[in-house]
């Protein structure tokens, strides 16, 4: 069954059609990659799915729910997590605290209960901390848990951002260029990590420029160019597709 269904999605910025009539589905438990040259509309697509931008027309369904008109925080609460191309750490907070924010949708203490430090908030707080430490450990950055997140090396920040997204226990994870700015060893590491995330049962939709990574780990690939779908299929088929080769290598 398709977890995410995108139908005739369109986004117009003035005279530019950034996403032009794109339709595709993401099946439960798979890794799907969106590739395409710069300016193909990949990040815009992510912003539309996560609710950061409203679509001009078209429809996005997630688990049967129509995401149209929903704010990003409600979409996040439905189980869609995302990371950013240029890592957005929360400044002024430690790596651990950053991950703890990820537990927000999985906890419920309100303003008054928090101010009065009601007994039931203690166990929740403990649980939040425990899960967050576990995730930092999983991502191999537990040793920098108490360092300010923005002071970490880029690769570490990326790992913390992954942990933060995973802390939400999402069913769909949107990864915007997870390997950008990483060296080949770190990229391979990220690839293994994404596969591991899929094996945990989390569906992954990723935008990535690193072709070898995409071909290695993806179950399905969607190719965009100038906002339009060029091809869609398994990696082996995409590699043979004459349209795709034309876009990437020229005629």
């Amino acid at each position: 069954m398709a977890l995410l269904e995108v139908e005739n999605l369109q986004k117009r910025f003035g005279g530019l059609l950034a996403v032009d009539d794109v339709s595709f589905t993401v099946k439960q438990g798979l890794i799907k990659a969106v590739i395409g040259p710069n300016g193909a509309g990949k990040t815009t697509l992510f912003n539309l799915i996560s609710g950061a931008l409203p679509p001009t027309s078209g429809r996005i369904r997630y688990n049967g729910d129509d995401l149209g008109g929903k704010k990003p925080h409600s979409i996040a609460a439905l189980g869609i997590a995302r990371t950013y191309q240029n890592v957005k750490m929360f400044a002024g907070m430690t790596a651990l605290e950053n991950v703890m924010v990820g537990r927000h949708v999985r906890s419920r203490s309100g303003f008054l209960a928090s101010m009065l430090k009601m007994p039931w908030t203690w166990s929740e707080e403990k649980e939040i901390r425990k899960r967050s430490v576990e995730l930092l450990d999983l991502l191999g950055v537990a040793d920098v848990a108490d360092k300010e997140a923005t002071s970490l090396a880029f690769g570490q920040q990326r790992a913390v951002e992954f942990a933060r997204a995973l802390a939400m226990e999402p069913s769909l994870l949107l990864l915007d260029e997870p390997a950008a700015g990483l060296n080949i060893y770190e990229t391979a590491e990220v690839g293994r990590l994404i596969v591991r995330i899929r094996d945990l049962g989390i569906t992954v939709l990723l935008v990535e420029h690193d072709m070898s990574l995409v071909m290695d780990i993806s179950d399905e690939i969607l190719v965009l160019s100038f906002g339009q779908t060029i091809a869609e299929g398994i990696p082996a088929a995409i590699q043979q597709d004459p349209e795709v080769i034309k876009i990437y290598l020229g005629e």
Binding site: P72, H73, K88, F90, G92, M93, V101, H104
Partner: peptide, 14 residues
């Protein structure tokens, strides 16, 4: 504090 750091990212954390 997350809102202070990045409102957009805080929103996407729910």
């Amino acid at each position: 504090r997350a809102i202070h750091g990045s409102e957009e990212a805080a929103e996407s954390m729910g």
